[in-house]
């Protein structure tokens, strides 16, 4: 469990939200606020990271996270290079650490890494002096996704502390779930999960997380539902019998949501499987914050980049005014 530490403390890297204090997470979210406005300008650029070199090292396919990071980097004026596994020496058998050291030798400042193995981001962070940002490592963490989820909830409900947030779906394989659990708990929210037991990891209750077997109970309980994408291969690997049945038992439908005792906020990290984990009427409905999540993603990533580059919380407003 996280100790309540009053001060903002962010290390060299952002590999996960586990162990970060509530003050640190709040500091990141507060830093994102002034950056939101930059994306609304005609000229979406401030030179906060001018002269910095950032490598986006993607060992796993990603569209929205990579583009969101790239926008964040470019809007802060950084020079960026994108490397995806298919176009790199990774396919020639080079190890992760050698790839990173070679990049390091070209004098880079930051690495944003997406990798299919849990722990890959901290593996890299421990071995190179550059700042490392985890853009998703296996089934471990995806901290910037959870940060943007929390920023979006805070925008809508005005706070995180005391809220009840339920993560719905494939928890076992989800790095988004883990980051949300750690982050939300640090900010004083209650977290639950809901899904078929075959997709709920053992021992999750020891993390202080309640589990619901029925989506109706989760809807009854929660202030916000974070609905995860159900990967199609979960069917072929035997975790669930069919997508059709998943929708019938666990799908967040308009009818189910209509029975909620409050205006439940609906989040989804995307991409959406319409008609599987969520119905279109819900995804596109008034309670959905799915597109604001995407918008906030850029601001949150700008905040993380700015802070790791040496910025301080509260300094963002001045920084962006100063040179723009």
């Amino acid at each position: 469990m996280n100790q309540a530490r009053p001060e903002f403390e962010l290390g060299k890297d952002l590999v996960g939200l586990e162990g970060l204090s509530g003050a640190t997470i709040t500091g990141i979210l507060d830093t994102a606020e002034p950056f939101k406005e930059i994306s609304e300008r005609a000229i979406k650029k401030v030179p906060v990271l001018r002269g910095k070199t950032i490598v986006n090292l993607f060992f796993e396919p990603s569209t929205r996270t990579r583009i969101s990071f790239e926008f964040a980097e470019k809007r802060l004026g950084a020079d960026t290079v994108n490397i995806s596994s298919s176009g790199s020496s990774v396919v020639k058998g080079e190890t992760l650490v050698d790839t990173a050291r070679n990049l390091e030798a070209m004098r880079i400042d930051m690495v944003v890494i997406r990798h299919s193995s849990s722990g890959a981001a901290s593996f890299l962070a421990d071995r190179i002096p550059s700042n490392v940002i985890n853009a998703g490592d296996g089934q471990h963490e995806h901290p910037t996704q959870a940060l943007l989820d929390m920023l979006t909830i805070r925008d809508r409900l005005g706070r995180i502390e005391g809220l009840k947030v339920c993560i719905v779906g494939d928890i076992v394989h989800s790095r988004v779930a883990r980051s949300n659990i750690f982050g939300l708990q640090a900010l004083g929210a209650e977290v639950a999960v809901c899904g078929p037991r075959s997709l709920i990891p053992r021992g999750i209750e020891e993390l202080g997380v309640e589990s619901f077997n029925h989506i109706e109970d989760a809807i009854e309980w929660a202030d916000a539902l974070n609905i995860l994408r159900l990967q199609l291969e979960r069917m072929s690997t035997g975790f669930i019998p069919s997508l059709r049945e998943y929708n019938r038992v666990f799908g967040v439908t308009r009818a189910r949501l209509a029975r909620a005792p409050r205006d439940t906020v609906i989040l989804h990290p995307g991409p959406i499987n319409r008609g599987v984990e969520i119905d279109s009427a819900v995804a596109d409905g008034p309670q959905s914050v799915i597109l604001p999540q995407v918008t906030n993603g850029v601001a949150v990533r700008m905040a993380v980049l700015y802070l790791l580059a040496g910025g301080v919380p509260g300094g963002a407003e001045a920084a962006k005014q100063e040179i723009s």
């Binding site: 849990s118 722990g119 490592d137 296996g138 089934q139 883990r178 990891p201 053992r202 021992g203």
Partner: peptide, 15 residues
């Protein structure tokens, strides 16, 4: 090992 540590680390467990 399958359990809370594997769950927190996001590593696949052996029960």
């Amino acid at each position: 090992n399958e359990g809370v540590v594997a769950t927190a680390l996001g590593l696949r467990g052996l029960p």
